[in-house]
């Protein structure tokens, strides 16, 4: 009796999420997969016929003409991976020392600074990017200040370059790197650090052999949740990137909203999805292995 009631309530609790995500999450992803193998129609539509050259095009062979190898899309894809990796590295370098600093502050200050880290997360993404647009413009704050100080003779061109894109992504991703990193750093066993130093290891050795391995879960966690939204990002390169900072996300957007080649856009999205799932699977496998060893 009790068991049956339990299963009725359990069913009622699980049914909404199962139905909702089944229809509006799983089906849309499956439809992308289907569309990525359809033939692009002449005027922006699709023909329901199998076509694998959407993928061929990504890797450099447009529409089945093997002789014309032009890996322009592959280059943009590699650029996106590079930008995302750079974003991970820069956020890590910026956040690691600060996480240490915050974890050693007295309680009240620590909570205040943690609040300050999470606050931008609550404020609008587009507003924060817009701020950088103002700062980096040729007539913007950054150049004005440098010109006034006489450090440069003419405005530096930072806006609409890869530097601006990576800077923008670093800026919006900082909280995502900081929080997992902080959780790890805060759990660091200080006695082990002291022991390592007392036993004659120098600071660098202690850092590499004691501190880094202990905070590795935070580093990897932060890296994954910064890398994933960075790869497919199209807002940051759209606002700050220009033609030289174009990423795969911009390509997808163009296929859907201006070129109207939905099958090709779907194929590009499948590649983004494949990258994301690969990264996630590696992260999960590592986490499993890590907890198995401990």
């Amino acid at each position: 009796m009790a068991l049956r009631r339990q299963s009725v309530i359990l069913g009622a609790l699980l049914a909404p999420v199962t139905l909702f995500l089944g229809v509006f999450f799983v089906l849309p992803l499956l439809i992308i997969a289907v569309f990525s193998f359809l033939t692009p129609g002449l005027y922006g539509g699709v023909e329901w016929a199998f076509y694998h050259w959407n993928y061929g095009r990504i890797f450099g062979w447009a529409d089945g003409i093997i002789e014309l190898y032009e890996p322009i899309y592959l280059r943009i894809l590699l650029r996106s991976l590079t930008f995302a990796a750079l974003t991970v590295i820069v956020t890590l370098i910026l956040c690691y020392p600060v996480a240490f600093w915050v974890s050693r502050l007295p309680d009240r200050w620590r909570l205040a600074f943690l609040f300050l880290i999470t606050l931008p997360f609550f404020s609008s993404l587009i507003v924060r990017l817009y701020a950088w647009l103002l700062i980096l413009k040729p007539t913007g704050l950054f150049n004005s200040v440098l010109l006034k100080l006489g450090l440069i003779g003419q405005p530096l061109e930072i806006l609409y370059t890869p530097t601006a894109v990576v800077l923008g992504m670093v800026y919006v991703m900082i909280p995502f790197m900081f929080l997992p990193l902080y959780a790890s750093v805060d759990n660091l066993d200080r006695a082990q650090v002291e022991a390592s130093l007392d036993l004659g290891a120098n600071r660098v050795q202690t850092f590499v052999k004691v501190v880094v391995p202990q905070t590795l879960p935070g580093i990897l966690g932060g890296a994954v949740i910064v890398f994933i939204p960075s790869v497919g990002n199209f807002i940051v390169p759209d606002v700050l990137g220009g033609a030289k900072g174009l990423m795969v996300g911009n390509l997808v957007e163009q296929q859907f909203l201006s070129s109207r080649n939905w099958p090709f856009g779907s194929a590009l999205s499948m590649i983004i999805m494949a990258v994301v799932l690969t990264v996630l699977l590696i992260a999960v496998a590592r986490a499993r292995k890590g907890s198995g060893n401990a």
Binding site: P28, G232, V252
Partner: peptide
């Protein structure tokens, strides 16, 4: 974890 753009176009 799914990038916004993938979910959006899906």
């Amino acid at each position: 974890m799914m990038p916004d753009i993938v979910l959006g176009i899906g």
